[in-house]
Amino acid sequence: MQGIILFALLAFTYLMVIAKRMPALIRGFRYQSLCLFAITFVLALIQREPELYIVSGLLFILKVSLIPYLLRRMIDKIKVSEDLGLFINPQLSLLWALAFTYLSWIFATYLNGANNAILTGTLAIAFFVVFSGIFLMIFRMTALSQIIGLLVMENGLFLLASTVSGGMPFFVEIAIFFDVFVSVLIMGFFVYRINKLFTHIDVNKLSRLRG
């Protein structure tokens, strides 16, 4: 069961890396978060811990519903083109993603040893999700896609934390959720401002400060 969900998560991350337009990227993020929710929920069912139910519920409310909705609304409101400002085209991005997957596998086996295949696999996928988040932040040049890249990295870390150390302590988890939500709100606020002042959200063209 968990293997299937993890594979789906991997596939959705690939979809995000090769996405060409903003709505596709947001949809990818929503599905990815849905997979995370499924994993946590299954874990909660197995371990019967009320805290895990709360965490998975929060995941569903914040990352599957609220944040993608806010991002969607932002695109509709600021009415810029939906292009992502690709620095690297989708085919090349796919190659990069493959390389990242292999690298994360090597890193995971270094950390954990090859004795526990499922754990190593999860570790590798978690690192891959973090890497692809960085990739999205660096090679997609709009402010919105940078926010999504950050969220993807955070998703990867959530997966990492829940696999390697059985999750963070409960209140830390809640605080981090709160933190992520607040940061999306604040970054969204700045996206509106950038759009108002510059009439675009292409961060590559923000170059007034130099030296």
């Binding site: 960085i134 940078q146 940061s183 970054m187 700045f190 401002r193 950038i194 510059f198 961060v203 400060l209």
Partner: peptide
């Protein structure tokens, strides 16, 4: 201003990453 919003954006993104 344009400069300060640009600085704030860079600040928030680089530090968050």
């Amino acid at each position: 201003s344009k400069e300060s919003v640009e600085a704030a954006w860079k600040y928030i993104i680089i530090c968050s990453v």
